[in-house]
């Protein structure tokens, strides 16, 4: 893997309610994760900024959010009836905070250069946008050149994106799968690194340092 240091554009994202779901695992409960995977941001940056292939990852800031559930009954247009109610888990501001805040890091390259010039912008992320979820304000903070560190990954990214994000070594893989669109109506699931994986890479991706051998 390429060990070159990467530069990132740092954005702050604010929202009042957001549900970035894990896939529906059967049943009627839709849990929400506490990071923003690269796959979610890739789609959003394509839709709002016309960037076909921007690489970005996000992490919700601790103590700015708590979980709650929202119950709704999807409508079955074919039968004209309501389906079983679904419990959607989402993040909302915790007591004493104005908004849920996340840090978004976009890999700097020729294509994403224009992002550093954007004014605070409204974008939508996650599930149930029609019910008011996922309305976010994205504000550019600045450029960061993180140090390299060995530690536990705190987000989710495709394994094939390791190079792009400057991850020079994967020491322990905690695998999962992220959806990757291959056209407007279809896609595949690609193998990804999830939280808890041990990597050598930019410290912005790392939750806690790993202190042992590898």
């Amino acid at each position: 893997m390429n060990e070159s240091n990467k530069t990132f554009f740092h954005f702050e994202l604010e929202t009042q309610a957001i549900a970035i779901g894990e896939r529906i695992k059967g049943g009627v409960f839709r849990p929400c994760i506490e990071t923003i995977p690269t796959s979610t941001l890739k789609g959003s940056f394509r839709d709002y900024f016309g960037l076909a292939d921007a690489s970005a990852i996000g992490f919700f800031r601790e103590r700015t959010y708590e979980k709650d559930t929202f119950t709704y009954a999807p409508f079955d247009a074919f039968l004209g009836t309501a389906k079983l109610p679904i419990f959607l888990e989402y993040l909302k501001p915790t007591n004493g905070t104005k908004a849920v805040i996340a840090d978004i890091y976009v890999v700097k390259n020729g294509m994403t250069e224009t992002l550093s010039k954007i004014s605070p912008t409204e974008i939508f992320l996650g599930a149930l946008k029609s019910k008011g979820f996922g309305r976010c304000y994205l504000t550019y903070i600045g450029e960061v050149e993180p140090n390299h560190k060995v530690g536990y990954l705190k987000g989710r990214l495709l394994e094939e994106e390791c190079n792009i994000f400057g991850i020079s070594k994967v020491i322990k893989s905690c695998h999962g799968y992220l959806f990757y669109p291959t056209s407007e109506i279809s896609g595949v699931y690609k193998r990804a690194l999830f939280e808890g994986s041990i990597i050598e890479g930019p410290d912005i991706l790392i939750e806690e340092e790993y202190k042992y051998d590898y």
Binding site: G187, V188, Y189, R191, Y212
Partner: peptide, 20 residues
Amino acid sequence: LYEKNLISNFIETINPPLCD
């Protein structure tokens, strides 16, 4: 001292649907 894991051989790409 190492921290490691053992997993089955998960393939790189899976065509939908994924196991619920």
